[in-house]
Amino acid sequence: MIRDMKLNNKTEVASLKNVIKYYRLGDVEITALRDINLTLREGDFAVISGPSGSGKSTLLHILGCIDKPDKGRVIIDGFDTTDVALEALSGLRFIKIGFMFQTFNLIPVLTAYENVELPLLFTGADAASVRSRVVDVLKKVGLSERVNHYPSQLSGGQQQRVAIARALVGSPRLILADEPTANLDSRTGDEILTLLMRLNREEKVTVLIATHDTTIINKAKTVINIKDGELW
């Protein structure tokens, strides 16, 4: 089944056009995504839901330009990434896309502040504006009091907040979250979801969450279902 999910009529932030992705397991070729068409627009808050192995993460990776499709096109904020190597897309990832991971993926030897500052360190931004931006996003995620704490000194929810702040610090148009609440208890998971919804509303950032957490699915404005690499 081929579906083109156009979620609203606002500016297009990211889209997949006839995306196909294969994986090879030994001699067996597995189709992870089958002819996917999907469009995300400014301010969307969508959840992509499906069982394990359905292709949620693969879709997120391709949309986040950290993996390439075997066929089809990926367009991010009007820029067709199809013929551009992943390495050359690092700038696009920094400017347009914020990533959140199930295991937070914070650098353990860096403080909350330093983790958030990390993407900005490698830009030409001056120290004062970097500081101001990092403090600002940490405040937005409610971690003003924890800036100098290392990940090991933070709870799971706080670590995910740092990850959100890191995803937000480059002012991206799209935040992709892969199972962001899977490693959190339900109350903390709710708090993270509420935070993401607030940022979506206030910052006008488009959010796509891959999850099979029913709490998130129930609260999402839009739910995209995926099974065996197909949207339905």
């Binding site: 390495e87 690092s90 696009l92 920094f94 400017i95 490698f122």
Partner: peptide, 15 residues
């Protein structure tokens, strides 16, 4: 994993 994370958040391989 750290290298993967750095790349995913947009830090170039050169840096």
């Amino acid at each position: 994993k750290e290298i993967g994370t750095l790349k995913a958040i947009g830090i170039s391989g050169r840096w």
